[in-house]
Write a protein that binds this DNA or RNA. Structure first.
Length: 261
DNA sequence: AGGACGCCCTGTTCGC
DNA sequence: TGCGAACAGGGCGTCC
């Protein structure tokens, strides 16, 4: 789930559940998810401190503490956050568990352990040092067009390139291209001004709509391709069977009629 | 530079 | 029904 809309939903969830509460113990169930820190490092940064605010850049979630450190979370291909009271029912695949002194807990879930957690002093520096591009929501149309002009290769690969635009993954790149009526393997250089304008608008529309749907596939607008990304499904717009191709190491789903061939 | 590919993990789905 | 293979919404390194 964890592309920009999903991570934004997690961020808002943290805001309404986990801020300004004194943290007790921190349990690292799977140390392999940590990088550039250790269970001790996490404990030192969090225990007896509290979360103050949250931020997001692309698919990364940043949580400010009152210990000078920010917690950085990434969810890989699968992941979730869960705030709950009953300690006897720790969710499956909990890799990090944070106890609050009010009796509640925050669990970071990562079934495939492809998620990563670390600490940083500054999200801005961290984003820069890790080569992330501009967040998809902070990208103006002018900058979008400028970047397109410098880009070669396929449009889907570009949308998914975190060092160019941060936040868009396989699912939402498919959705944006579907809404824009552009084939995933079109080269960026073949897009004219009108195409880029359509694509930019589709990007904003898709990401906003997905967040408003709580990033829940079942609540997406009916004109979305997202729930139909599988064999035997049909285009929600023209009823043509959807097809898939392998590209950029991922499976792209699209409508051969609405998006060309 | 772009893209294909293997790999990291493990649960779910597919195909025979 | 059963079982192994293929696949899954990410990202990194390597090779061409």
């Amino acid at each position: 789930m964890p592309e920009l809309p999903d991570v934004e939903v997690y961020r808002r969830y943290l805001d309404v559940t986990s801020l300004h509460q004194r943290i007790g113990q921190v349990h690292v169930m799977s140390p392999s998810i940590l990088f550039e820190t250790s269970p001790q490092g996490l404990g030192h940064a969090l225990t007896h401190h509290s979360f103050q605010s949250t931020g997001r850049h692309g698919k990364y979630l940043f949580i400010e503490t009152d210990s000078e450190k920010w917690l950085v979370m990434h969810f890989g291909m699968t992941g979730d956050l869960r705030y709950f009271k009953n300690q006897h029912k720790i969710p499956d695949y909990t890799r990090l568990l944070i106890d609050f002194e009010n009796g509640f807990h925050l669990a970071y879930l990562s079934p495939r352990k492809l998620g990563r957690i670390t600490l940083t002093d500054s999200p801005q520096s961290w984003v820069r040092e890790n080569g992330l591009g501009v967040d998809a929501f902070d990208l103006s149309e002018e900058e979008f067009v400028r970047r397109a002009a410098q880009r070669r290769g396929s449009v889907k690969t570009w949308l998914m390139d975190q060092s160019s635009i941060a936040g868009i993954g396989n699912i939402y790149s498919d959705e944006i291209l579907f809404q824009a009526g552009i084939h995933p393997q079109r080269s960026v250089s073949s897009l004219d001004t009108a195409d880029l304008n359509t694509l930019y608008k589709a990007m904003g529309h898709v990401l906003n709509a997905a967040i408003n749907a709580g990033a829940d596939p079942g609540k997406m607008p009916s004109a979305f391709l997202l729930p139909h990304r599988k064999q035997g499904e049909r285009c929600p717009r023209c009823d043509t069977p959807v097809v898939s191709i392998k590209t950029a190491g991922r499976t792209a789903w699209y409508c051969p009629r609405c998006q060309g061939t």
